[in-house]
Design a protein around this nucleic acid. Structure first.
Lengths: 342, 342
DNA sequence: CTAGGCTTGGCAACCGATTGACAAAATTTG
DNA sequence: CAAATTTTGTCAATCGGTTGCCAAGCCTAG
């Protein structure tokens, strides 16, 4: 029976291992592991010695070695349709902050708007992460539910039966927007709808209708439109034909497209036409006039989503409420809205 | 001596392991590993049987288990100062595409403009990745060189002795910008500089000077300025005091800040002042007038950087040239430049 | 001073894949 | 038809941690 259990630790990654620390501190590797991961399990004196050794060797735990026996990787996948869509920036930022605070790392992946790519990527990434955050997925509900069974999953800005989600409360922003326009004397308002399949678009339209009814202004939906600059641009004719004096667009991109098209046509904004966007994306204040828009608490949305995920990771998944929507939207009044034309 | 080496494979992650495949196909686990990773090493018949079993069990290799003995993780870290900076989008997109084509996954990390955070994050992420892409690092040269010794590293838009980099050729865009302004009759041009420490800013300034000399126009540097909207806004007074008729800004953000400040002051762009930005960021065409800017082939930059990294990962590091800068910049003329005021 | 309980640290078995060394089987060659 | 050679598959060690179990050491109490 050989007593020499001390392994050589070949430094494959160039980094120090717990075996190195153990040797330096004169203890067993398992003691090092305990000292570093289970505070209190080891006497304060030994722990201090081990920590000192760890610091001296500049030790960082190898996540792979840890992941193998525990299954926990301290990594969360953040999946979105399009990394370059400015709507996501703040979500990413917020999510990243909270994740970092808790020692997690975010793996940002994008599906490039393709649901088959999204599946492939998730397939590859899933085994390496502890949880999944789906921000704008093109995946069908069943796939989402399947993923949810494999790893804790949270949806942002979308609801699927049985899956946790964080969705802001659109009602305040919606109501404020209609009230704002009504107060400026607008009687006829148009909602420039987005893609026909948009879950969000449907929800927004219903909220606008409800608010319009209450404020006693009339509203019509003009759409569907691609959720892009071009989509807004191409909608101008239909907007003008409708005779409305104010437009609320599916998102800022559409709003800006419309704004530029209107100006190119010689119209003055907001004198001839008031325009409101949704999202308050990066650049929505670059326009002249700066865009009035309904802002979403995107960063906080990202923070809340990760927080929820961490809760799911912590305790039993059962006691975490399925939905969360304390966050409010609100109207950000800038320069693209004004008094209705007489 | 027990002969029962077949391990139970407790399905910790819920996924099938090579042990399951081995059992199903009636071979040894190591044979499965060889069949799947070393084509040719195993007879075609056995390999086919194993592949069939793998497919049946829906097998996906566990990256952690693989990473442990090999050290290869098929993951590349993409480190940048600020994820929400639109300049990076296209770089990320391009890098992500190439990485995916080769079965690699990108880990996007941001330092939030803090070099100490950047160090911490890298420290944590380094052991989990095969290589590092540094896009806008705030790290001192020595740190970069140290990272480069641990893992293959490529810098984008920056040069550090001994480290591989991909930098576009700024000369064409620079020259075109000066020529464009000269052709419009501008004799006095200002360069709104960025942060004083900016490697890139220094380079650009020198190129502008050279081009101005050749075109026989005068150029002055006004700066330093923060590389933000506010920075551009605050520079207006100094610009007006200088008496120039055209400005080239450190980046689009600064240009837009200046543009908006000028308009707020009642100046007409481009009639009273011509403005050129750099980067062609998302939103630079939202302004009115749309911004004339020097565009960088950002997406291709990302693609080239990952390609270089993959080369470094493949063969001996020695035969990959240290620098790469075939990509050209060019001037994108929009509406913010016009004839010089008489 | 000794018995019982609690701490503390060590041993060794794993997690899932890779790989060098070697043996068995298949093939070619003399 | 046996020997030499090549092909094919198995064994077992290993990567760097984690953790159940156990034993030695310590303290307190009777």
């Amino acid at each position: 029976m050989p007593t020499k259990t001390q392994k050589p630790a070949k430094q494959l990654t160039g980094a120090a291992t717990i075996y190195d620390i153990a040797e330096l501190a004169g203890v067993n590797p398992s003691t090092v592991s305990r000292a570093l991961t289970t505070p209190g399990r080891i006497s304060a004196k030994t722990e201090a010695k081990i920590r000192a050794a760890a610091k001296e060797l500049n030790y960082v735990v190898n996540p792979f070695a840890r992941a193998l026996p525990t299954g926990r990787t301290k990594t969360i996948a953040l999946m979105m349709a399009d990394i370059t869509n400015p709507v996501f920036f703040s979500v990413i930022r917020g999510a990243g902050e909270v994740a970092a605070e808790h020692g997690y790392v975010l793996l940002n992946a994008e599906s490039q708007e393709s649901s088959s790519d999204e599946e492939t990527i998730l397939q590859r990434v899933l085994p390496t992460v502890d949880a999944v955050l789906l921000v704008t997925t093109r995946l069908p509900d069943e796939d989402i539910q399947r993923i949810n069974e494999l790893k804790p999953t949270v949806l942002v800005n979308q609801t699927v039966p049985g899956v946790h989600d964080v969705v802001p409360d659109f009602e305040p922003g919606t109501t404020e927007a209609i009230q704002h326009l009504a107060a400026l004397g607008h009687k006829n308002i148009a909602f420039l709808g987005g893609p026909i399949t948009s879950w969000m678009g449907k929800l927004r339209w219903e909220l606008f209708m409800k608010a319009a009814l209450k404020e006693k202004v009339s509203i019509v939906e003009i759409g569907p439109n691609p959720p892009t600059l071009q989509g807004g641009n191409d909608a101008l004719d239909r907007v003008l034909a409708s005779g409305v004096t104010a437009v609320i667009a599916y998102n800022d991109l559409v709003a800006i497209g419309l704004l530029r098209a209107a100006q190119a046509r010689g119209l003055k904004v907001p004198q001839d036409l008031s325009i409101i966007g949704i999202d308050n994306i990066f650049g929505s204040d670059f326009t002249n006039p700066a865009l009035t828009t309904i802002q979403l608490p995107l960063k906080q949305l990202g923070r809340d989503a990760i927080t929820m995920l961490l809760e799911l990771l912590d305790k039993d998944r059962e006691d975490v409420p399925l939905h969360r929507s304390e966050l409010k939207t609100s109207l950000l009044v800038r320069e693209s809205t004004g008094k209705a034309k007489a």
